[in-house]
Design a protein around this nucleic acid. Structure first.
Length: 190
DNA sequence: TCCAGGATGTTCT
DNA sequence: GAACATCCTGGAC
């Protein structure tokens, strides 16, 4: 399996969010290797999207939203790291939030990092999956299209049904349904 | 140096 | 399903 190419990410965030379902997030570090199948995502846009970091003016904090697709965008909220991948072309703000994974490899390491034994609770939430995968602000700005410590790999054919809903936890959402998840998967956060 | 913000998690009922 | 604990970052001053 190879890392997803730049062209995959340089599309509309909603399309990228939908197509990321079923792909495999891999993180290699000194502690070991962890990986998981992506089962839940959300798309964020720029201007006109009140829930997006990029709806306000460009700052050091949110500038990744304007970068070309394929970079890791990490943000701290309520004591939890949010892991996003930038989408769309350079100067067009967009990102996809990873909300839930199905653990594949390094499950023992995930349990250790989370302090939990229950597999369902390891990665079913944006803050939870970051902690289980060992993702922190250190990974901010990483180019995920290059082979390295943190990448997303293409996977086999999509043998699942995709469903969508409104985004979760945002104070002001758009009318569009921008949350995508694999229907019936037990690791989806809600 | 201070302070508000914020796309959550956990626990309790 | 609701309450509340928790904390890093950057912008404001």
């Amino acid at each position: 399996m190879k890392p997803l190419p730049r062209s995959f990410y340089q599309r509309d965030p909603a399309v990228v969010a939908k197509d990321l379902l079923g792909k495999v997030l891999v993180h290699r570090c000194a502690d070991g290797l962890t990986s998981g199948r992506i089962v839940e995502t959300e798309a964020y846009f720029g201007k006109g999207d009140p829930a997006s970091r990029a709806s306000k003016r460009r700052t050091k904090l949110n500038e990744l939203m304007w970068w070309r697709g394929g970079h890791a965008f990490v943000y701290m909220v309520h004591n939890s790291w949010m892991f996003n991948v930038t989408a769309d072309r350079e100067e067009v703000p967009g990102a996809v939030l990873l909300r839930a994974l199905e653990p594949l490899e390094g499950i023992e390491l995930m349990k250790f990092r989370r302090g939990f034994e229950d597999e369902k609770l390891l990665t079913s939430g944006p803050g939870r999956l970051s902690k289980a995968m060992g993702i922190t602000y250190d990974h901010h700005k990483i180019d995920m299209t290059k082979p390295g410590h943190l990448t997303i790999l293409a996977a086999g054919p999509a043998d699942f049904k995709t469903s969508r809903s409104n985004r979760i936890g945002v104070s002001k959402d758009l009318k569009r349904k921008l949350r995508f998840y694999i229907e019936g998967n037990r690791f989806v956060s809600r």
